[in-house]
Simulated scan of single mutants.
Amino acid sequence: MHVRLKLLAAARSSALLATRFGDDRPLDAAGWHEAERAAPVLCRLAAAELRYCSPSARCRETGELLGLTPLAQPALRDCDMGRWHGRTLGEVTAAEPGAVDAWLADPRSAPHGGESLLAFITRIGNWLDTRPIEQGAGLVAVAEPGVVRAALAYALQAPPHTYWRIDVQPLSVTTLTGSAGNWSLALEA
């Protein structure tokens, strides 16, 4: 049997330039409006038997706004960025350019003292591989864009640096089908 998991990227909580590592801010006004406009299409996801979300404020709020009443999953939290938490990439690059270069070049590197990219992708993959398999059960998870990127890198068994090449837009839906260690990306019309 296979699982059909729809990953919904949360609505935005800040302008791109204001995005911070470990940003747990709630939805901003634009994010609320975008989610409300998308609700007539995305509310169909509430039909899933199992509904999850990352524990961040914006993921919980996106799920609630769409009527999903998702269960927060600590394993779906964004990458632990250690001492970089709460800072922008620009701020960290200005203060620690060598550390940022190492972090971007080596997926095993964690110069911030948190989680390496490889450890993050593995954690998300472990969550994927432990989803319950029931005949016809649909699953949905509202997650941070980084979590969706990690899930795709894992599911496609792509090299970890592929993570940096995946662009996940707010309120986009990505469908994965399969079972532990055997995932496929399903593109839908």
Rank of each mutant, 00 (worst) to 15 (best):
Leu8Ala: 04
Ser13Arg: 12
Ser14Glu: 08
Ser14His: 10
Leu16Tyr: 04
Leu17Ser: 13
Asp23Pro: 07
Asp24Trp: 05
Arg25Tyr: 03
Asp28Lys: 06
Asp28Leu: 07
Asp28Gly: 07
Ala30Arg: 13
Ala30Lys: 08
Trp32Lys: 06
Glu34Tyr: 00
Glu36Pro: 02
Glu36Ser: 08
Glu36Gln: 15
Arg37Lys: 13
Ala38His: 10
Cys43Met: 13
Ala46Asn: 03
Ala46Pro: 06
Ala48Arg: 02
Tyr52Lys: 02
Cys53Thr: 11
Cys53Lys: 05
Cys53Trp: 03
Cys53Ala: 15
Arg60Glu: 05
Glu61Gly: 05
Thr62Gln: 09
Leu68Gln: 12
Leu68Ile: 10
Leu71Ile: 08
Ala72Thr: 06
Gln73Val: 13
Gln73Glu: 15
Pro74Gly: 08
Ala75Tyr: 01
Arg77Cys: 15
Cys79Lys: 12
Gly82Phe: 04
Gly86Tyr: 07
Thr88Arg: 14
Gly90Asp: 14
Glu91Lys: 05
Ala95Cys: 06
Glu96Phe: 07
Gly98Arg: 14
Gly98Val: 06
Ala102Asn: 00
Leu104Asn: 05
Leu104Phe: 11
Pro107Glu: 04
Arg108His: 11
Ser109Gln: 11
Ala110Pro: 05
Gly114Cys: 09
Glu115Cys: 09
Glu115Pro: 09
Ser116Glu: 03
Leu117Glu: 01
Phe120Leu: 01
Ile121Ser: 01
Ile121Asp: 00
Thr122Ile: 00
Arg123Leu: 01
Arg123Glu: 00
Gly125Cys: 02
Trp127Lys: 02
Trp127Leu: 02
Thr130His: 10
Thr130Lys: 02
Thr130Ala: 13
Arg131Ile: 14
Gly136Arg: 10
Val140Tyr: 03
Val142Leu: 09
Pro145Gly: 11
Gly146Ala: 14
Val147Thr: 11
Ala150Pro: 03
Ala150Cys: 09
Ala153His: 00
Ala153Leu: 04
